[in-house]
Each structure stands twice: as C-alpha cells, then as structure tokens.
Design a protein around this nucleic acid. Structure first.
Lengths: 248, 248
DNA sequence: AGACCTTTCAAACGCCTGTTTGAATCACTA
DNA sequence: TAGTGATTCAAACAGGCGTTTGAAAGGTCT
C-alpha cells in the first residue's frame, strides 16, 4: 500500500520533467506516456471519460494495462493529462483567420462563424480541438479553468465584432446575448445533427448542410438580425401590446 | 433458460393489456409497473439510460431488483417503456399556446420560442417532457420514430410561422434552415448552460437569463433577422466579393 | 381447504470495470 | 560483469453492474 504511493509519487515528479522536453533520443518512459496520450485523446474526444475503457486505450497504444497507473496514477488523471496536452498543442487547433486592421466586421463575423462550425463538424479537425470543445461544452470540475483561457478570448472577440455591427448605443449585455445567439446556431448542428438530418430531406441535407453552406446561412441570419434590430425595436411596443392582450 | 424466456413471453402479453387501462382497483402487477415507470422516468430524463443503475430505480420505486426483469425484460426495455409512457401522457407536456386565426406571426413566434425555452429550462416541467426532449436530442435507435410524431409537427409549425415572416419568394429550404437557427438559439441554454453562466457575470446572469428574458432576446433577434433579410441580400454581393478577396 | 397461477423476494451469478501486485525485463553505472 | 533503479508485463483483485434463480408469498378459483 505504502509502496504504491511511493511509486506514484516518483512518477508525478517525472511527469513534470516531461513537460519540458521530448528529446530526439526519447526514453521509454516518455514514449509510453506519449503513446497513451495520443491513443487516449481521440477516443476521449469522441466518447468522453466514461465512454472509454482503459483496456481499449492500452490496446490501441500497444502498452500494458498497468502503464496508466504507473505513468498517470489513474484513468481520471490520464484524462486531465490529455486535456492539458491538447491545450499545449493549441497551435495545431483549427485557427481563426488572422485579419488585418481594415477588414470589415461583416467579414470578420463570416470568418468567425465558419471557424466555429468547422471546429464543430469537420471530421478531420485535430482531436486536440475536439477534446477541448467537449470540455468546454460539458466542463469537468477538474478542467473548468479551461473555459477561461481557451474559450473566453474567442467569445470576447465575437462580442467585439458584434458591437461593431449592432446599432450605436446597444448595451454590452445585449451584445453578449447576441453573441450567444450566434454560437447557439453553430452548436445546433453538432449537438443535434441527427435530428436535423431527419427533419430535412436527404437531398436537401446533402446539398445545403455542408460546412460552407451552414456557415453562410448562419452568417446571413445573424447579420440580418443586426440590420433589422432597430426596426424591431421600433415595432416592439406595438407587438408587445398585442402579445399581452393575447396572453390575457 | 427456456423457463426465463417463457416468463418474459407471458409478461410481454400483459404489457399490452396494461396499455388499455389502469382501473381504480389496480392489481399488484400494474401498480408495480407504474411505480417503476414513475421512478425511472425522471432519472432517465435527467441522466439517460447509462447514467442510472437498476438498483437506484428499484430503490426509489420501493420494489425488488428482479421486478424490472419480470415486468419489462431488461433495463433497456424499461427505458423504452418509459419513453412510450411519456409519449402517451403527452397531454401533460408543456403545451404550445392555442392561437386564434387572427394572431400575427410575430406573436406566434414569440409564443413558440417561449414554449421551447420553457420546455428546455423550466425545472418543474413534467419529466415526461424532459425525457422526450432528451430522446429527440440524442435519438436512440429504438425511439427514432419519436422525432417524427412528437417533434416534427412542432418544427413544421415553426417553419410556417417563419414563412409568414420572411420576404415573399424566400425558398422553403431557406425557411427550414432559419427555423433551425431559431431552435439552435433555444438549445444553447440547455446544452451549454454551464459555460454560458461562466461567460457572463453572475449579476448579469441572474437578471438577464431567466426564461422570459431569454425568450425575449431570441425572439427579437430572430424577428430582426427576418426584417433585415432583404437588406443583407442586397449587400451580399459586395460583401462576398470582399470576403473572397480576403480569403486569397 | 387445496390446487393453481401470478407476483415478490433475497441471494447469487457472470461479466466487465478500474486498479494493484510482484516478478521479469531493460538500461545504465561502477 | 555484477548491481541498481526504472519500466514493463501477465495475472489477479475488489467492486459495481445488469441479470437470473428458486423458493416464498399472495391472490383466485372450485
């Protein structure tokens, strides 16, 4: 009992070393760690922590079952390590376009939407991106901080795009909520792809629901909402009165 | 082995009887079935098939573990029975408003959105509704037909509302996709409620994200999109040209 | 009351999970 | 080459899962 704790303690030290380097002449230990991470990552990204067995992971990695305990302590910490690893490899994630200063907010919005949709749906987006997306959508207690430094910057940049598109004087709160409306549209196809496929006909699905077309529609819809915002503002009072009379 | 099959076969017959009636003098069998369904339903609705153990279900129902096998065959068929039961009790689900002929599409849209958001978020919406929502979002093979008769009618009525709001000549395909944009906004708060709460400040969340406010924003955003649709159509060519030049 | 079928019950079964063990193997130093 | 610590391995472990069992209890007929 005490001996196993010692084992883990030793390993936890060399985990830290492993952060710093994976030298050309990689030792067995570092290689095994890497094989586990690279094997576990994609499956975790697809099916989550509970949906995967350690036996499957080790099988794909070609290492012994006990390796997880030896190198990471347990399955849960392997998962966390995989998330961290994915975050470190952030460069590999599907990148946002890098606009110049003079690019219009309309174009920025278009690029943002396409990037998000692609991250959601592109099957050959790197698993690191997909795992981080999963964590962002259903944050594990252990990784809640991830939202802050992985996703919030993207969110804030979307908000600032929208601030440029909405009429002057629109509150920041309203802009944030609008940003969420844009994100919600993107998420739908990831979360409820099955039902969407069932609701529209097959032919229509094949022609109008590839990534480009989806991004295009979401963009037009969202942009149109910004354009029409003031008009609805003006109608609002009349409609709201009608609404309340209908409610009663 | 053969005997157990016989048992199940017998039961499967009386399952059918159980559809027809639950008379005042309910016999033990029907009562146990009902207790299982009523105990399992809410937990299934919350955590799904895999997230619940038969021991928990039977514990809450106050019946023996073996009752599931005896009355339903196995856990999976209990789940299916719970979904069917939920669908039969459709009347209890949170209803759409029943508009008169003369109600404007703007108002209809407002009512539709609020109903959906409420179904997603209201904690004391009946579990039957929540279980069906879950099935619609991640359709199990067994219950795929559910989408057709439970959800499609709602979807089609949303589409027809939108057809009345979009400019004349908008294609049906575009209206369906727009309907999905509306639904996506509603879904976000159910699917990614955690991250939303983290992205906006606590104070803002409490004041601006109750059901009424959410429905109001989604409604304004969607209505504005319909109003601004033609304007964007007109801009589209110019913007698209800019987009393509930026891409290159 | 006795026979018969239905329904419940406590207990166990077999399986799969994540984890642990102790010995075998490897890589390196003296 | 012998010794030492790091790493791998096959095997087993404990515990939870869904399922099954065979007997007990309940209800309903003649």
């Amino acid at each position: 009992m005490a001996s196993s704790e010692v084992r883990q303690e030793k390993r936890r030290v060399s985990e830290l070393e492993a952060d710093s380097a994976a030298p050309a002449g990689m030792d067995r230990s570092a290689e095994t760690r890497l094989r586990l991470l690279e094997a576990a990552g994609p499956i975790f990204a697809e099916r989550g922590l509970e949906g995967v067995t350690v036996r499957e992971i080790c099988g794909r990695a070609g290492v012994n079952i006990a390796a997880i305990h030896y190198h990471f302590g347990d399955k849960g910490r392997l998962y966390i390590a995989a998330v961290k690893y994915a975050r470190e490899r952030r460069a590999e994630r599907y990148p946002f376009p890098n606009w110049g200063e003079d690019v219009s907010p309309e174009i920025r919005l278009r690029g943002f939407i396409e990037t998000i949709v692609r991250r959601m749906l592109e099957p050959d987006v790197p698993w690191q991106t997909r795992l981080l997306m999963r964590e962002v959508l259903r944050p594990t207690d252990a990784c809640r901080a991830l939202v802050e430094d992985y996703f919030r910057p993207d969110f804030e940049s979307l908000v600032s795009i929208i601030e440029n598109l909405m009429p002057d004087g629109t509150t920041a709160r309203c802009c944030r909520q609008t940003a969420l409306s844009v994100l919600g549209q993107c998420l739908l196809y990831r979360i409820a792809g099955d039902i969407v496929r069932q609701l529209v006909t097959d032919a229509e699905y094949r022609r109008g629901y590839e990534i480009e077309s989806l991004a295009d529609h979401i963009w037009r819809f969202s942009l149109a909402a910004c354009r029409g915002w003031e008009e609805v503002e003006r109608e609002a009072q009349r409609i709201r009165k009608e609404w309340e009379s209908q409610q009663a």
